[in-house]
Write a protein that binds this DNA or RNA. Structure first.
Lengths: 355, 355
DNA sequence: CTGTTAGCGCGTTCAG
DNA sequence: CTGAACGCGCTAACAG
């Protein structure tokens, strides 16, 4: 009776091997099958006293099924992989929150990979996730490697977040970028700004950025009296940012200039730049940024708020329905952006009569 | 020759089962063992032509070993679990960066669990991580469940980040909190502030917060002319924050008051509060915060910067050495904090002569 | 140098 | 209702 190997009470120096289903079965005086059934929830297939035996034995031994072995056998690992382009971006983290919460809530566990916008790391990440047999993939990357990856060939559910990926057709959840771009631009124009620069990092081909720019330009087109342009800035090169904006302001002298930041990181850089150049918002130049961040109210920055948590959560909801075999054509869940008006775009009303 | 099941070229509607080591062996005309050896890097144990056969077959089939099965057999899953208390805290995310980078760099993959400061979720997370046989655990939680968990009993390497955990004795990497607390306090006093409140969330028992407070109070004790106190604030209750600070200011009327925020989230709340109460920094009240954040320069906020990325990275380094069998007694890696002086504590010099 | 055999921990037929 | 036997994909003994 005292030949219990790996018992919790053991104070041996050895790592105390984890208890297996076999041990439980042995100590409970039943077969592995019964324990397995018990775990699988097939309660009505077990006699009363056996059920009790198993219950108590499991509790006593602190047994916990090994998901690796389980996954190996059943094909269901209950693992979800998430690949993100840049963890430094607050948006990414915010979405991650939602995904993680949803995962946990539904008994899934999250494997996280950050690519840092690097193709190689993305490829490696995808390989890693595949090697762990994740059941699904949530992707927030440009994903040049997804297309060629065998993951999609393998029929694994993939949900895109924020960014569309060329050449593939997956579920997508994110902001309604065109609407948001229009909303932002219309607000600026409504506030009397008549020269607007859409400022974005030079990353080419990011769908969300492109669509925001589309929204921007479509509204600009509706207002012939206004001028607009798209400004690509390197966030790591502040002198160049200063120079580019200065150029803009010089060219648009006499106009009411506003900057529209394509995401939170750009907004921060622009705010810092304005501070460096001693330009006041909104008198000297207006500033509106995508992504509502914790410090936005502090800086008095007007923003387009995204429901980031919901985006992450929805992505996972979407994933779950796919995992349950939903075969409907790829969906798009586009959540609306919400304008939050603060001082950076307000308080310098210039009445515009006769459009 | 064309009976290749699961080939990449297959355009069947079925999920196309992933290629296994057996398939590779069969198609290469060798045994599984040889392929396994090949994968294991035992190159010199294989003949030239067999090596070539395997190489090409693997490439052709796009074979990738299944880590689940591998881990099941060898006991090495190359999985690292990370449990964090609060993903909303920028500090957490910053550390996460470093951990993730180090993981990837060393061929490990990260499983992330967020507990949201909830005991139950922490317990569940630990259970989940255990069920996936993670090789090590990186913990940034109060960890009331760690102690009782069978994880440590199982001899799994555990590295604590930032927070010590009562009752257990693991490796710890984080800020030198006492030094940082002293540094911060000394700076404030040096700037002429003689009434200082250390403001922290009410969470009891978080070691890092306690040690920062210790550093704070030890310096205060060295300056009898100064008064100080510890203020516990509920970050979700702004009216109460306003009230508490008002009270402080009233009590300390006539003195130069400064607030010392115990972390970045507190600093933000305090900055917002000052804005609400129309108090100017540093004239009306000084503000110094732990954690350097992206918006700190924008707000002109003085901070104690932590090397968050390095903390995360070191945690993983520490982990790796443990995984390689390092049995030395638990270490403590304490990285120094660095003072960054900005307007929130500067510019209102009050010369203090005579110590 | 190579292949055969036996498990890792588990789920699942298939007989009893 | 229960248990014995097989196999998931892989590695590690052990033979040849």
């Amino acid at each position: 009776m005292d030949s219990v190997r790996g018992s919790k009470k053991t104070v041996s120096g050895e790592p105390a091997r984890p208890v297996t289903i076999a041990q439980v079965a042995r100590e409970a005086g039943v077969s592995k099958t019964s324990v397995s059934r018990f775990l699988g929830g097939e309660l009505d297939a077990l006699s009363e006293n056996i059920r009790q035996q198993i219950t108590s034995t499991i509790a006593r031994l602190g047994y916990q099924p090994n998901q690796m072995a389980r996954g190996l056998k059943r094909g269901r690992t209950r693992l979800i992989g998430m690949v993100v382009a840049d963890m430094l971006n607050p948006y990414t983290v915010a979405v991650l929150q939602g995904v993680e919460a949803a995962c946990q809530q539904h008994g899934y566990t999250l494997i996280l990979c950050n690519t840092g916008n690097d193709e190689l790391r993305e490829r490696q990440s995808l390989a890693a996730l595949r090697s762990y047999s994740v059941e699904g993939l949530i992707v927030n990357t440009q994903g040049r490697n997804i297309e060629s990856s065998d993951l999609q060939q393998a029929g694994m559910p993939i949900v895109l977040v924020d960014r569309r990926i060329e050449g593939v057709d997956f579920d997508l959840v994110g902001l309604d970028n065109v609407q948001a771009g229009r909303l932002a631009t219309a607000h600026l124009i409504g506030q009397g700004f008549d020269a607007i620069a859409f400022v974005a990092p030079p990353l080419t081909g990011v769908s969300s950025r492109l669509m925001r720019a589309d929204g921007f330009q479509s509204v600009m087109a509706e207002h012939p009296g206004c001028v607009g342009e798209v400004l690509a800035v390197d966030l790591d090169d502040r002198p160049s940012i200063d120079a580019q904006v200065r150029l803009c302001l010089a060219r648009w002298r006499g106009r009411r200039v506003a900057l529209l930041a394509s995401n939170g990181m750009v907004a921060l850089e622009l705010a810092l730049m304005l501070q460096r150049l001693a330009l006041r918002m909104p008198q000297d130049v207006g500033l509106l940024g995508f992504d509502e961040l914790p410090w936005s109210p502090l800086a008095g920055l007007s923003t387009i708020e995204q429901q980031t948590y919901e985006i992450g959560f929805s992505a996972m909801t979407c994933m779950l329905s796919r995992l349950q075999g939903d075969k409907c054509p790829p969906r798009e869940v586009l959540l609306p952006g919400k304008l939050i008006v603060r001082n950076s775009t307000q308080g310098s009303e210039v009445r515009k009569d006769g459009d």
